[in-house]
Design a protein around this nucleic acid. Structure first.
Lengths: 267, 267
DNA sequence: TTCGTCCAAAATCTCGACATTTTCATTGAC
DNA sequence: GTCAATGAAAATGTCGAGATTTTGGACGAA
């Protein structure tokens, strides 16, 4: 069989169907910010962009609804999930709860193989965090990947599939916020220290300390992405070109109100 | 506008599009067990059943994937999410974590309106739990509804949308397991006492005790649905008619192995 | 028997056209 | 000036036909 039949993109994701290919590509474009939060996803327009039929595109979008990266409104089409500061707060709080739970499980039940993978992932991450200051643009994506791998390795000892599933969704949501600002794609300087603290406590099998460090790490990430989000929303409310944005707040004070119900999450 | 344009079902759910109507109906059929766990969802066949086109049906199924009630496999179509004992365990454990977290938030931050709603919901539930012994068949659905309302009222004081969203998914999953066995649709006799204990501790604003009672309640529910699940899987492995079931275990010992990876959840 | 190949039937996946609904700028009335 | 009605343009939602892939059994060789 032709392995890369539907590979219209640059990455090595092997999509078996057109739906999956479109799903992958749209997902990437949402995460990269190419499709901005709140923007309308016109099927007729995107059809050409992703070279698929209308039904296929709709199916791909429907699957993204399940990850809360896209929202579907009654007879009013699809939109990229909006962003809000309150969403960042909710997201991060639950991330703490789930990741700490998973980390505790891992520390208590993880075997040698789990521990070895944590060591390896931390080493790979440390290596790039040493060099990432030199040219953040080039190493940014690689750091992103190794950071994800490290966090996944930490909790891989947790056997609860539901915890891992929901945690992943939250991680991706958080990732989207982090990538919102192109200027902030560089990594803040204290991240390596935070990772080290988590790593040390984990290897020492000190669950309480490890969870405290991990929670602290997530809390600091939250502060960064909340600031980014706040600034992006403020910029958007003054700057024009809000043509596509859903109910874009017109003034700085209206933004606070919009913040209340702009979360892309509720059922 | 015609409010009930797409209402092909008996309930009052007002679906705005054919996709939503099909989504609602299939969801109900999965939860009721009319579409059994693991069974294949052939688009051509279901098209007639739900009176929609192929693309529409696929879109509805895609949305159910997001709730993990349906799983989509590469080029191999859709299936109802399979069941397993380990899934029950994972499900219930996370339910404890999320519901207790939400309950604690509610107790600490809930206002008078929240408290009043809890009282009202508990009252409505108590009333039907007094009479449900008489004829469980008739009052079963009503009890189900009031039970859901009570549990939702308890945690309504939690402002975190992500917590509520994931909690709801888990609740529905749990509901499906509970409805698996038609014989077990009657409510065990100690449920009202459990609800009372949760209620009393909640109104007393004793978060620790309330969470203990709630966790205990979920744990006991878990025991019941785990037993049901185990029996259903055993019956299925002996009894034939496993025509549609995915990789149906042939023997009692093979079931244990199948239990390992039959969870409908992983990414 | 057991395994691999081959082929027809069945199912999945994909597409573009069409019907329905929403959007929004224009017009007119108060 | 504000508001409601109008209607054309644009977008959404729906469908079944057809291309592609999987499935399952027949056939034959080791």
């Amino acid at each position: 069989m032709d392995e890369e039949r539907y590979q219209t993109d640059q990455t090595g994701s092997t999509a078996r169907t057109m739906v999956e290919a479109a799903y992958d590509q749209i997902r990437r474009d949402v995460l990269s910010g190419k499709l901005p939060p709140g923007s309308k996803l016109r099927v007729e327009h995107l059809r050409a962009e992703y070279s698929v039929g209308a039904s296929t595109l709709r199916e791909a979008l429907s699957r993204l609804v399940g990850e809360a990266l896209v929202v579907a409104a009654g007879q009013r089409g699809f939109r990229v999930a909006p962003i809000s500061v309150s969403d960042v707060t909710d997201l991060s709080e639950l991330r703490k709860l789930l990741e700490c739970h998973a980390l505790r499980e891992s520390i208590e039940h993880g075997d040698d193989r789990w521990e070895a993978n944590v060591v390896a992932a931390f080493h790979r991450l440390s290596r790039i965090e040493e060099r990432v200051h030199e040219n953040p643009e080039e190493l940014g994506d690689e750091w992103e990947d190794r950071n994800r791998a490290f966090h996944e390795a930490l909790i891989a000892g947790c056997a609860n599939r539901w915890v891992l599933h929901f945690r992943k969704i939250l991680y991706v949501q958080s990732l989207r916020y982090r990538r919102l600002s192109l200027t902030n794609r560089s990594i803040p300087r204290d991240v390596h220290a935070e990772h080290s603290a988590i790593f040390d406590a984990t290897l020492a099998r000190d669950a309480d300390l490890a969870c405290r460090q991990l929670a602290d790490h997530i809390e600091k990430t939250k502060a960064v992405i909340a600031a980014i989000t706040s600034r992006v929303l403020a910029d958007r409310s003054v700057g024009a070109s809000a043509e596509d944005v859903a109910h874009a707040p017109r003034s700085a004070e209206a933004q606070e109100a919009a913040d209340q119900d702009a979360a892309g999450q509720p059922g």
